[in-house]
């Protein structure tokens, strides 16, 4: 955990130190980047692979890829609306939120909050389990753009405001207002061909509840370090 935080700080420091004098005038077409052009809609589609410790999920739900869709809409006064969907049928998480950015030469610093809703249901071997949850993700993001290459580092906190799990009609758990953990991401977006971009990211989460592993119904209380790699194609 401390290592991750140091890596995040080092990256931020390196980016700031390597600041270029050039003021970029390019239109920012990155979905995951800190700044979006006013009234421009961009979206991306890709996959995210999470590696959940095998001890927890055993042979059942490990290494299942999620489809990931992101959408961003630029607003005046440096505001943007953003939304994200992660889905693999059994587990679906929808996030939406607003962010504000502060441009600084080749850099953009963004602050924002996403509100998320998690819905999961699994019917296997007669089990009828489900989850629904409301989540909040405040974040800070530092972006660096140069020659149409967009690099972002992001730190986010995760809070569970309300979460219920069910086995059939029985409510198994009811969690309210709990700090769940932190996550750090590194994302690179660059042109792919024509107007398309590709995005590559790595995210390390350090959290108590890993939403991708909700069917495991973990009783043991532990904080897990979970890496996630994602790759997406961005459309203007």
């Amino acid at each position: 955990m401390r290592n991750l935080f140091l890596i995040f700080l080092v990256t931020m420091a390196c980016l700031v130190k390597a600041q270029s004098n050039e003021i970029d005038t390019l239109t920012h077409r990155g979905v995951l980047y800190a700044r979006h052009s006013p009234y421009a809609l961009t979206w991306s589609l890709g996959i995210a692979i999470t590696s959940i410790p095998r001890d927890i999920v055993e042979e059942e739900i490990n290494r299942f890829p999620f489809l990931q869709a992101d959408i961003a809409y630029g607003l005046p006064y440096n505001f943007s609306l953003v939304a994200k969907l992660n889905t693999m049928v059994l587990t679906n998480r929808l996030l939406s939120g607003i962010q504000w950015n502060y441009p600084l030469s080749s850099f953009d610093i963004a602050l924002g909050t996403d509100i998320g809703y998690l819905l999961g249901f699994v019917t296997i071997n007669g089990f009828d389990n489900s989850i629904n949850s409301w989540l909040v993700y405040p974040y800070i993001q530092c972006g660096y753009h140069h020659n149409e290459i967009l690099v972002s580092v992001r730190a986010e906190a995760e809070y569970i405001t309300s979460q219920q799990t069910f086995a059939g009609d029985i409510q198994v758990s009811d969690t309210r207002n709990r700090r769940n953990g932190l996550a750090f991401s590194l994302i690179i977006e660059q042109p792919f061909f024509h107007n398309q971009r590709c995005a590559l990211g790595l995210k390390i989460s350090y959290s108590d509840f890993v939403y991708q592993a909700w069917p495991a119904f973990e009783t043991f209380k532990r904080t897990l370090t979970v890496p996630e790699v994602f790759c997406a194609f961005t459309f203007p």
Binding site: N3, L4, I7, V10, T11, C14, L15, K17, A18, S20, S51, P53, D55, Y144, H146, N147, V151, V153, L186, I188, L202, I204, R222, L224, T225, V226, P227
Partner: peptide, 24 residues
Amino acid sequence: DCIQYIAVLFSFCLFILHSGCIDN
């Protein structure tokens, strides 16, 4: 620019290395 890329990639590699030896 290469120096900046090195900074970014250095972090990226640390991420990869770290994620490869997770201490749960």
